[in-house]
Amino acid sequence: MGVEKILFYLFAAIMLASATAVITVRNPVRAALFLVLTFFASAAIWLLLEAEFLAVALVLVYVGAVMVLFLFVVMMLDVNLARLREGFARYLPIGVLIALLMITVLVMIVGPEQFGLAKFAEPLRHDADYSNTRELGLILYTVYVYPFEIAAVILLVAIVAAIALTLRRRPYTKYQNPDEQISVKRDDRIRLVDVPTEQRK
């Protein structure tokens, strides 16, 4: 238990520190990299909860794919930092007020009094041969098949919506048509002109 506790606090501390860094560092690229670190730390905490599959998926999907894509976007966009910080001082009091309110509520609600060991017994630890992936696989297509299918439809709608909102058909854009390119014949490109020879005078 001792090691686990130390690990938990270590990763929790890393997570909190990097999450704070995400919103405080000036450089957006660094902020994105700190977000990667936050995801890593939360993946480690999921490992402690015996949710290996989710931890691996978090690293693969978020760190590997989403954040890399995000980094590209951040690098391509010209983000005006000065404008982002405008009004920071003006909104600070109300921001602090809301933050304090939220923290109070959170401590009241999810503190040890409500969810402590006295109210909820510690869940049983599984054996070494327990596979989180197998358990997920068993229920994903049986118990949760309906929500799973809906989630798939949501992703489809997201694709349709994204394309509908961003794809613009520009009739004047010049583009290559590979289909025509490969089916081109010699006669389409070369025209043999019969030039009448003239008599040298």
Binding site: P147, I150, A151, V157, A164, L165
Partner: peptide
């Protein structure tokens, strides 16, 4: 609760996109 949330998200996502069409 899961189905309520997913159904709501499916509906909302369509509406957000339709408003911006």
């Amino acid at each position: 609760l899961l189905t309520i949330y997913l159904g709501l998200e499916l509906l909302s996502l369509c509406l957000y996109a339709m408003v911006a069409l």
